[in-house]
Design a binder for these strands. Structure first.
Lengths: 187, 187
DNA sequence: ATCCTTAACGCAAAGCGGTTGCTTCTAGCG
DNA sequence: CGCTAGAAGCAACCGCTTTGCGTTAAGGAT
């Protein structure tokens, strides 16, 4: 969540963190992401700029933190009673959200201000968790299911690669194509 | 190459572009990438900072340009006389270069200062070109070969995804595993 | 409950990167 | 050879970023 370890999680530190994060979210929708500056966020949050610089070190790292929060799934994947439909619907939903302008902006921000790669790792963990829930359901039903790593490599990775490196031409059909590929390979 | 079209390719403009790019490369190795600033690069290149700001608009876009140059393959993929070995060797080489600290830094820079996505698109085009050369050779030999898009999706994309989102635990064995996967699926 | 330690924040000043209007130069062309 | 316009130089201004120091308050110990 926060790039620097919070030695004192309670009280004032927590309040400041919350105030700053909400200030970023509010200002993002009010003045736009490109107009954000540390002093602006600080003023809205009721803190001094130096506080933000000392805690986060950089506007990018702060935006990276907020972006990761917004990339966190709000609900477990929908249950449609079968592996194929579960995975297909989830992949379509995932691609739709991630390929949207705001989704791409959050992904970029998350990668951008992330010196140690922990925020990026968190993003992939979110996707991995969702996939594992779907696969666990399939296993409970007795269905043959691929490994989670296989789904990450052959469904999530291609979508993310195209979102980052090949903008344009991404639709639900592509997500279905990828899912069909892994399920065929499984047998 | 340059984000803003060069209406006057010859003479002074070309000299300035060359001087600025070499200044970036020199200073990157001397003071480190994080210590780069536009005034520093300008001083080394013998131009004024405003020149760089007007031509590139931003330090990030300048670094993105230089990064794309360094990500361009220096030679066509090696020919080992067979699709399997060609693709395996190329994938191992690709992963080795891209997963290195400097490779990851260049990838990040290329993605970072790239408002329209053209630099990122150039990076994926480099990889796609290399793959297509390998597949064309295989076709000339009469070998069964997968589609280029399939190789991009199932070999390049997983490697890039892990480089960006899951640093650590990447080795040549993983590249071989991915290549074996696409070749098995092809038949 | 109170004191002690120290991490975290506020404040303010200084440094410097980023921005911009204007001028000067020069490449390309009639 | 002169004209035109795009590009670079120059310089001043703005505001983000940094930093030292004093103050506050969270967490633990007595």
């Amino acid at each position: 969540m926060s790039p620097r370890p919070m030695a004192r999680p309670g009280g004032r530190s927590a309040r400041v963190q919350e105030a700053v994060h909400t200030a970023v979210r509010e200002l993002e929708s009010e003045v736009g992401r490109d107009a954000l500056t540390v002093p602006l966020v600080a003023a809205r949050a009721g803190v001094t700029p130096s506080t933000i610089y000392r805690r986060w070190g950089d506007l990018r790292e702060l935006l990276s933190d907020v972006a990761v929060e917004r990339l966190r799934p709000e609900a477990p994947p929908e249950n449609h009673g079968g592996l194929a439909s579960d995975l297909t619907v989830w992949a379509e939903h995932f691609l739709d959200e991630m390929a949207s302008p705001s989704g791409r902006a959050y992904i970029r921000d998350a990668l951008l201000g992330d010196p140690d790669g922990s925020n990026a790792g968190q993003c992939s963990a979110y996707a991995a968790d969702q996939v594992e829930v779907i696969l666990a359901r399939a296993a409970a039903r007795g269905e043959r299911a691929p490994e989670a790593e296989t789904v990450i490599d052959h469904v999530v990775a291609p979508m993310m690669y195209r979102i980052l490196f090949r903008p344009g031409g991404l639709d639900a059909a592509y997500a279905r194509h990828l899912v069909a590929g892994v399920l065929d390979a499984t047998g």
